[in-house]
Amino acid sequence: MLHVRNQQASPHAATARAADPPPAVADDGARARRKERDPFFDNAKYLAIVLVAISHAWTPLRDDSRAASALYTFVFTFHMPAFVLIAGYFSRSFTARPDQLKRLITGVGVPYLVFEVLYILFARAGWGGGDSDLPLSLLDPYYVTWFLVALFIWRLTSPVWRVVRAPLPVALAVACIASMSPHFGNDLNIQRVLQFLPYFVLGMLMRREHFTWMRRTEVRVLAVPVLLLALAVSYWSVPRLDQSWLYRTNSAQEMGEAAWAGPVMTLAMFGAGLLLTVAFLSLVPTRRTWYTTLGAGTIFGYLLHGFVIKASRWWDWYDVDGIASPAGVAVVTALGAVVVTLLCTAPVRRLLRPLVEPSMDWAFRQPPPARPGGERAVGDGPLGERAGGERRPVNAGG
């Protein structure tokens, strides 16, 4: 994510819901099973949010360090696709039932409204570094809040992708058309919404066995050279490729390129992002680790770390001798990882839950009692973070 508004915001992503709604059947065994979580997805979300944070921390170093710029390009190629694909996977059962719409509003819509306002007020204050004239516009997502807008729209379209005969080709066609259509405008960061759409649709098409396939030994062995090669290509591309392609914020024409370059780069970036996402997910541990529980708090880390990133720009935290040296890049990387990790912890989640995970039963009609044998949808939270999401382990190894 860059610090320039609506040009290099990044994804960035990932989110968490902790409360578990009452099960349809009041059976102790069923209740226990529903509270089980699959550590694989929590691990993946935590590792991905760490990549988001450190890539944002690298942003001011790119002009002075080719290595930092290469790392930035490398991570940006796949961390957003990984988030969006997981979001799609946990949206497979979204049918727009009243209870699902309620969770979508309280888990995605309301946090967007809250943090959009907070970020704008933060920027207006700025203490000498912000934008005091920044207008309050809910149609113009600020910095990291764009992902909540995109997720809200993607999830609402979920029923459509289940009835389309060829959903992924259609989604890719939509992304390609958007990439060469400057007249779409910037409301709701629509370019990004449409250009990242194929990853969401692909996630909806995935099944448990696809993640199991990623855990095969041969896939994991190949993942390492693939990631190293991608890092080398990223280093090579630094002076040759406009990094703005990574953000999917503008059409090709708005970037000064021919219209045909939009679809070409859209397909190329989709392929590269998917390949590296598979490589990344294949290496994610499936067992419980010290950071597994933090995966349930990634929405907090995602939304809150942006304030730290913005403050670091406004208050010149990077005006330190040697900050772009290898040692300086390492320190910045470590600090980014530590900060976002702390923001995912239980104390922070308890303190800020009213803002990030508001309880708004007062705003909705009470649903009729659930029928015996009823099933909850996969993935109640933005990325399936409630205990109602995937729970069986992907693989015993890892």
Results as ranks from 00 to 15, higher is better:
residue 1 M to T: 11
residue 2 L to R: 14
residue 6 N to K: 13
residue 7 Q to H: 12
residue 13 A to E: 00
residue 16 A to T: 13
residue 19 A to E: 10
residue 22 P to M: 00
residue 26 A to L: 12
residue 26 A to Q: 14
residue 27 D to A: 02
residue 31 R to F: 05
residue 33 R to P: 00
residue 33 R to Y: 08
residue 40 F to K: 06
residue 44 A to Q: 11
residue 56 H to R: 07
residue 58 W to K: 07
residue 59 T to D: 14
residue 59 T to H: 12
residue 63 D to K: 11
residue 65 S to Q: 05
residue 66 R to C: 00
residue 67 A to W: 10
residue 71 L to Y: 02
residue 71 L to G: 14
residue 71 L to N: 05
residue 73 T to P: 03
residue 78 F to C: 12
residue 79 H to W: 03
residue 83 F to L: 13
residue 86 I to L: 15
residue 88 G to M: 07
residue 89 Y to W: 11
residue 102 K to A: 02
residue 103 R to G: 07
residue 104 L to E: 07
residue 106 T to I: 14
residue 107 G to W: 00
residue 115 F to C: 04
residue 122 F to P: 12
residue 122 F to Q: 09
residue 122 F to H: 13
residue 124 R to E: 07
residue 125 A to W: 15
residue 129 G to H: 02
residue 135 P to C: 03
residue 141 P to M: 07
residue 148 L to V: 09
residue 149 V to S: 11
residue 151 L to Q: 12
residue 155 R to M: 12
residue 158 S to V: 04
residue 159 P to D: 09
residue 161 W to R: 05
residue 166 A to L: 13
residue 172 L to Y: 07
residue 172 L to W: 01
residue 174 V to N: 09
residue 175 A to P: 13
residue 184 F to K: 00
residue 202 L to P: 04
residue 206 M to E: 05
residue 209 E to G: 08
residue 215 R to A: 08
residue 218 E to H: 13
residue 220 R to Q: 15
residue 223 A to F: 01
residue 226 V to M: 15
residue 228 L to D: 10
residue 232 A to N: 08
residue 233 V to T: 05
residue 234 S to Y: 03
residue 240 R to S: 05
residue 244 S to N: 12
residue 247 Y to W: 08
residue 249 T to P: 01
residue 253 Q to L: 13
residue 259 A to Q: 09
residue 260 W to L: 06
residue 261 A to G: 00
residue 274 L to C: 07
residue 276 L to K: 04
residue 279 A to E: 07
residue 283 L to Y: 04
residue 289 T to S: 14
residue 292 T to R: 05
residue 296 A to H: 04
residue 302 Y to K: 00
residue 303 L to Q: 12
residue 309 I to L: 10
residue 312 S to A: 15
residue 313 R to H: 14
residue 335 L to K: 06
residue 349 R to M: 12
residue 349 R to Q: 14
residue 356 V to L: 13
residue 357 E to D: 14
residue 359 S to G: 07
residue 362 W to C: 07
residue 367 P to T: 03
residue 368 P to Q: 11
residue 369 P to M: 05
residue 369 P to S: 01
residue 369 P to C: 03
residue 370 A to R: 13
residue 374 G to F: 09
residue 393 P to I: 08
residue 396 A to Q: 04
residue 396 A to R: 09
residue 396 A to Y: 02
